[in-house]
Amino acid sequence: MDASATTPAPRLIEGLLGLPGLGRLARLLLASPFLGSGFGKLLDFPGATAEAAGLGLRPAMLVAACVILVQLGGSALFLTRRWCWLGAGLLAGFTIVATLIAHPFWQFAGLDRVRQTATFLEHMAIVGGFVAAALLVHGRPVR
């Protein structure tokens, strides 16, 4: 049997997967935390600057502006078909860096380590979602 062969989905699932706009909706859902965060930071720039400073990032104002640009710009690109790959790359890269900074699970012990590890892995799952979405939008199989 061919290793790339897949088991056919039940008719109901095939119908759902064939719904018009489902791919765009899936990308919108995947980008929604970044859109919400980006708009929130844009509307409260002093708070965004304080957040960056609280994480030890300097110059905090420039970091906050770059975060907003990546979150909103990356999301906008990710929602297009032509530039989905670029938006996915920006958001995935941002997520990796932000997660390493904000959730260093290896520095914790006990229950805090378990929580930080779970959050870290959840963020890495989002990175995987960006990769899978970019592959699918650009006609590449997800293997």
Score class of each variant (00 low, 15 high):
residue 9 A to D: 09
residue 38 G to R: 08
residue 13 I to Q: 06
residue 38 G to F: 11
residue 32 S to L: 15
residue 32 S to R: 08
residue 2 D to A: 08
residue 38 G to W: 12
residue 1 M to H: 04
residue 43 L to R: 15
residue 34 F to D: 05
residue 25 L to K: 01
residue 4 S to Q: 11
residue 18 G to I: 13
residue 33 P to A: 08
residue 37 S to Y: 07
residue 42 L to Q: 13
residue 12 L to C: 05
residue 41 K to S: 15
residue 41 K to W: 12
residue 4 S to G: 00
residue 3 A to R: 06
residue 15 G to F: 02
residue 34 F to W: 05
residue 43 L to Y: 13
residue 4 S to H: 12
residue 3 A to M: 01
residue 19 L to R: 09
residue 37 S to W: 09
residue 15 G to V: 06
residue 6 T to H: 12
residue 24 R to V: 15
residue 38 G to S: 08
residue 36 G to C: 08
residue 36 G to E: 06
residue 14 E to Y: 01
residue 20 P to W: 06
residue 8 P to G: 03
residue 42 L to T: 14
residue 32 S to P: 01
residue 1 M to A: 09
residue 43 L to K: 12
residue 29 L to Q: 04
residue 6 T to R: 15
residue 3 A to C: 00
residue 6 T to Q: 15
residue 22 L to R: 13
residue 36 G to Q: 10
residue 11 R to D: 12
residue 31 A to T: 04
residue 41 K to E: 14
residue 15 G to W: 07
residue 17 L to R: 12
residue 33 P to C: 07
residue 9 A to L: 13
residue 25 L to R: 01
residue 34 F to Q: 04
residue 27 R to F: 03
residue 10 P to H: 07
residue 36 G to V: 10
residue 12 L to G: 06
residue 16 L to A: 09
residue 29 L to D: 03
residue 40 G to T: 10
residue 15 G to N: 12
residue 30 L to A: 13
residue 21 G to D: 06
residue 8 P to H: 06
residue 13 I to A: 13
residue 8 P to A: 13
residue 6 T to I: 11
residue 20 P to T: 07
residue 33 P to M: 07
residue 21 G to S: 05
residue 4 S to L: 07
residue 26 A to F: 07
residue 35 L to G: 04
residue 36 G to S: 10
residue 43 L to G: 03
residue 23 G to C: 11
residue 43 L to D: 10
residue 31 A to Y: 04
residue 10 P to M: 01
residue 18 G to P: 07
residue 3 A to K: 03
residue 6 T to A: 15
residue 2 D to W: 00
residue 10 P to F: 02
residue 10 P to N: 04
residue 22 L to H: 08
residue 28 L to P: 00
residue 43 L to A: 15
residue 11 R to Q: 11
residue 29 L to W: 06
residue 20 P to E: 09
residue 22 L to N: 11
residue 20 P to Y: 04
residue 42 L to I: 14
residue 26 A to N: 03
residue 3 A to F: 01
residue 13 I to F: 09
residue 23 G to N: 14
residue 2 D to I: 00
residue 25 L to F: 07
residue 9 A to N: 05
residue 10 P to G: 02
residue 38 G to P: 05
residue 13 I to P: 01
residue 39 F to W: 12
residue 10 P to E: 01
residue 8 P to R: 12
residue 22 L to V: 14
residue 15 G to L: 11
residue 37 S to K: 06
residue 16 L to H: 01
residue 22 L to E: 14
residue 40 G to S: 09
residue 25 L to Y: 00
residue 36 G to N: 10
residue 19 L to E: 08
residue 14 E to P: 01
residue 10 P to Y: 00
residue 14 E to I: 00
residue 29 L to A: 14
residue 33 P to Y: 06
residue 18 G to R: 13
residue 42 L to H: 13
residue 24 R to P: 01
residue 16 L to C: 04
residue 23 G to Y: 09
residue 19 L to W: 10
residue 30 L to C: 06
residue 35 L to D: 02
residue 29 L to V: 15
residue 17 L to A: 10
residue 32 S to W: 14
residue 43 L to W: 15
residue 7 T to A: 08
residue 12 L to S: 13
residue 2 D to V: 00
residue 19 L to G: 03
residue 2 D to E: 09
residue 6 T to Y: 03
residue 5 A to N: 08
residue 1 M to G: 07
residue 23 G to W: 07
residue 42 L to C: 13
residue 40 G to L: 11
residue 32 S to V: 08
residue 8 P to D: 10
residue 18 G to N: 14
residue 40 G to H: 10
